[in-house]
Design a protein around this nucleic acid. Structure first.
Length: 327
DNA sequence: AAGTCACGCAACCGCTCGCGC
DNA sequence: GGCGCGAGCGGTTGCGTGACT
């Protein structure tokens, strides 16, 4: 079955609408209401395709359309909705009063998409583009005890892409390794388990759109239940992700690996005091994704970049990581 | 001042879906 | 069930404009 043209295109005008055409269309719709787009141009005296009239009305002339710059709240909503709905622009527009699907689509393609790419976030999956960073090698370097004076710098560079709890763990291990060179040889297998997990997680995260939104809650002081459970919850996908993501990583394996690791760490410590002090220190203060309190509508594009970077960023204050505090 | 380039956005195109016959 | 049609949706295009050289 051949596709019939939406209208007879001969003699119909294309291109930008003139103010006169807009006025004619508005007048007609105000009198007769929208609908029956096929006959509307003829009845309104417009030399336009009905489809073109509908688009002009729905995307530009409709009185309830909100013009102007997108607010941070709207931008945040778009990102969140897009992570769930994908390129369903009409569905996203339905949840943003006054915005059209076309406008949202354009804004996504010209602003948000580019910003996410700059941040190393895949705009399709909303996952960090870990293919740009060999995290497993960084963690291995830390976990296997290679004394790397630039380790914290490496972590700092990686911090925008990594799970904050992994950073804490790797940082901690690096520091512990400096203090106890026997740790590696004694617990090689456990450490390798974690490193291997990180490698798998790195691969998984490239197809898991939910991971980057697993903003952690405040770290629990309890080493065993706090670190491992919090870390596990962040490494694992959300319940919805578990249902949809075939790559979901079972919690049993993660739990076992981290129980082993935490047990290993505890064995090497006479006291948990310094360990807990590390964990209780606010290494990260992630900005809640849902928080709108930090938004300023009049902010510049650069400020938005900064804000959006902060969504995925967790600070590691140098003072917090003063090695002397741990020794 | 003129030319070039990059960007943003309105509009178009082609496809799918739903409904009535 | 098949067909025709209208409407809607998502991807793409092309023009206007401002920045840059």
């Amino acid at each position: 079955m051949g596709r019939s043209p939406c209208c007879d295109k001969s003699g119909l005008k294309k291109g930008p609408w003139t103010p006169e055409e807009d006025h004619m269309l508005i007048n007609y719709i105000q009198t007769h209401g929208p609908g029956n787009w096929r006959n509307l141009p003829k009845n309104a005296g417009l030399q336009r395709c009905g489809k073109s009239c509908r688009l002009r009305w729905t995307n530009y002339l409709r009185p309830d359309i909100k013009r102007g710059r997108f607010s941070f709240e709207e931008e945040e909503s778009i990102i969140q909705l897009h992570s769930v709905l994908g390129n369903k622009w009409s569905a996203i527009a339905a949840r943003l009063p006054g915005r059209t699907d076309n406008e949202i689509k354009n804004y996504w393609n010209t602003h948000i998409r580019k910003r996410l790419l700059r941040m190393g976030i895949d705009p399709v999956t909303h996952a960090p583009r870990l293919d740009l960073l060999d995290i497993s090698s960084i963690l291995r370097s830390a976990l296997l005890g290679g004394t790397n004076p630039n380790f914290l710098n490496i972590l700092s560079g990686a911090q925008a892409l990594m799970n904050p709890e992994l950073l804490k763990l790797a940082t901690l291990l690096n520091l512990k390794n400096e203090n106890n060179t026997n740790l590696v040889s004694q617990n090689q297998q456990q450490i390798n388990n974690v490193a291997n997990y990180c490698t798998q997680q790195q691969l998984q995260s490239q197809v898991s759109p939910q991971i980057q939104f697993q903003i952690p809650t405040q770290t629990n002081n309890n080493v065993d239940n706090g670190l491992s459970s919090n870390l596990i919850s962040n490494m694992s996908c959300s319940s919805s992700a578990q249902n949809s993501n075939p790559c979901f990583f079972g919690e049993d394996l993660i739990s076992r690996q981290y129980s082993e690791l935490v047990h290993c760490l505890n064995d090497t410590n006479k006291s948990n005091m310094e360990y807990e002090s590390v964990l209780s220190t606010p290494l990260s203060t992630p900005t809640p994704l849902n928080s709108s309190s930090t938004y300023v509508n009049s902010s510049t594009e650069e400020e938005r970049d900064t804000y959006c970077s902060d969504i995925f960023k967790f600070e590691i204050p140098e003072s917090t990581l003063d090695i002397n505090d741990f020794l």
